[in-house]
Amino acid sequence: MAPSANSEDALAKTFDSCVADTIIKIGGGMATGVLFSLFLFKRKSWPVVFGVGVGAGMGASNCQYKLNVPFMVRADQIKVMGTTANVKDSSSEIPV
C-alpha cells in the first residue's frame, strides 16, 4: 500500500518546480539579453539586466499562479462506479 501524500509534500513539490522554472526563465532571459547586447546594442549591459528581470518576473508570476490555483480534479480522472437511484434532486424541493 502506497503512503498517501501529505499536503507538505505537495507544497514542497510545487515550490521545487517553481524554483526550477524561475531559474530556467532567468537563464533564458539572460541568454537573450546577452545576444541582444552583443549583436544590437554595442555591448551595453542593460539588455542583460532587462532579460534577467523579465525572466524573474515571468517565473514569479507562474509560481504565484501555481501556488494560488485551487486543487481541481480534471474530468479525465473521474471514474463512474455505477448509478445512484436513491439520490434525490434537491433543486426541485421547496424549503419551508
Rank of each mutant, 00 (worst) to 15 (best):
G51P: 03
P95Q: 00
G27T: 11
E8S: 06
M30A: 14
S17N: 09
I78S: 00
M72H: 13
M58I: 10
G53S: 14
S91H: 06
K79W: 08
F50H: 05
A10V: 13
T22L: 06
G27R: 03
F36L: 09
K88E: 10
T22A: 08
G51A: 01
V48Q: 00
V54L: 15
D76L: 11
V49A: 15
M1F: 10
M1T: 15
Y65W: 11
S4N: 05
D21G: 07
I78N: 01
F41H: 06
G28A: 06
A56V: 09
G57S: 14
V49K: 09
V80R: 07
S17A: 10
S45C: 07
N86F: 07
V54H: 02
K13T: 14
N62Y: 11
F36Y: 06
V96Y: 15
G82M: 01
F71E: 00
G82A: 07
M81P: 00
V69L: 08
A2G: 13
T14E: 03
V49F: 11
G33S: 02
V80D: 02
F71G: 01
Q64E: 12
V49L: 13
A75D: 14
A5P: 06
K79P: 02
S4R: 15
S61I: 08
G55W: 06
D21T: 10
P47N: 05
G53I: 03
R43K: 09
K13L: 08
L67Q: 00
Q77P: 01
V54Y: 11
M72S: 13
C18M: 11
M58K: 12
L35H: 03
S92G: 02
T32G: 09
P47W: 04
A10F: 08
V80L: 05
A12L: 09
V52P: 01
G57P: 10
V54M: 13
A31G: 10
K25T: 09
R74S: 11
C63A: 15
V52N: 02
T32L: 15
A12I: 12
F39K: 05
W46Q: 04
N86K: 09
A2D: 13
G29H: 01
I23A: 12
V52E: 01
P3V: 08
T22V: 10
V49E: 04
A5H: 10
V80C: 01
C18S: 10
N68M: 08
G82T: 02
D76C: 02
P47Y: 06
I24E: 10
A60D: 03
